[in-house]
């Protein structure tokens, strides 16, 4: 299987990458780990005329603690997210999710920025960044802007990222006292993509849920927040009965995907099961 022909450039700096991007009028694509883009090109779903290899921009491959945020460089591989001491300490749910992506070889190459930019409806990170209230930092020659995860995912394989922009960082608020987060995934056994994955973050005070964020991936054309569930949890103790009641009817099968991995009705059922597991674990960690 081969791709259409294209040209290739290895960027030595963010500036150079952005200049090349801007000079190709939407026909160029950034190449990081290539583990979403190259398969898409082989299937001829996309046919850029220029690939700009940004994988050598090491400044964007670091995880740092920046005030109350984890700042994760866009080129941080899944393996590096999985093993980062900072991520494991301040946001273990994200490290656990990264450890469940694909397989070891894929995690050695794929990057968080590349995965977010690709916005596969079954990718894991979209649920995490939504539940964790992350911000996506994007840079172009016009400057840098930040978009909340809530505003980032537009549709299947479509995000707020413009053709001339690159994701440079993901900023995630570190978990505070009384906060816990978890991710529960029903994985396709071959690909490890999420048939349904649910990430949950809860804040507890005096045994009561102050706020919850619940986000679902794999089920629908794009990852989404289950805001009705979040509202039903607020102000209540996170008992099994409260969680069971809150997740009931989380998703409408009419709005979900149906494919070989599962029908829409099955996915709707999985949404409730995975949300229950994620909330139960998040609440246990917050306590």
């Amino acid at each position: 299987m081969s791709t259409y022909a294209f040209d290739y450039a290895r960027a030595q700096s963010v500036d150079e990458a952005l200049t090349l991007l801007a000079g190709h009028d939407g026909e160029a694509r950034l190449l990081a780990g290539g583990h979403s883009l190259i398969p898409a090109m082989k299937l001829r779903l996309t046919a850029p005329t220029l690939l700009i290899d940004v994988s050598g921009l090491e400044d964007l491959a670091a995880v740092t603690l920046d005030g109350g945020h984890l700042a994760i460089g866009a080129l941080t591989t899944h393996r590096a997210v999985e093993t980062s001491e900072l991520v494991r300490t301040h946001c273990p749910a994200l490290a656990e999710a990264a450890a469940g992506i694909g397989d070891p070889q894929v995690r050695n190459r794929g990057t968080i920025g590349g995965s977010l930019a690709h916005a596969d409806p079954a990718a894991d990170y979209p649920a995490l960044v939504l539940a964790l209230d992350a911000e996506i930092e994007m840079t172009s020659r016009d400057g840098t802007r930040t978009v909340s995860a809530d505003d980032f995912f537009v549709d299947m394989y479509t995000t707020a990222l413009a053709a001339h922009e690159m994701i440079t960082r993901v900023r995630i608020p570190v978990l505070g006292h009384g906060e816990g987060a978890a991710y529960a995934k029903f994985a396709n056994p071959a690909s490890r993509y999420a048939v349904v994955g649910v990430a949950a973050k809860v804040s507890l005070a005096d045994g009561t849920c102050r706020a919850a964020r619940v986000a679902v991936t794999g089920a629908a054309p794009k990852a989404f927040r289950a805001t009705a569930v979040e509202r039903r949890l607020a102000g209540r103790p996170l008992t099994e009965a409260v969680i069971a009641e809150a997740v009931r009817g989380l998703a409408d099968p009419n709005e979900l995907l149906s494919d070989l991995s599962g029908s829409a009705e099955y996915r709707a059922h999985l949404c409730e099961v995975m949300a229950t597991r994620a909330l139960r674990e998040a609440a246990a960690r917050a306590a």
């Binding site: 290739y8 190449l31 290539g34 583990h35 190259i38 398969p39 690939l51 694909g102 397989d103 070891p104 070889q105 894929v106 050695n108 190459r109 071959a190 690909s191």
Partner: peptide, 21 residues
């Protein structure tokens, strides 16, 4: 990039050479 038959080490890290240019 599913089966791993093409796995090689690139700078010591295992990778699937069918999904790398």
């Amino acid at each position: 990039s599913s089966c791993g038959a093409c796995t090689v080490l690139i700078n010591g890290k295992s990778a699937k050479s069918c999904t790398i240019l």
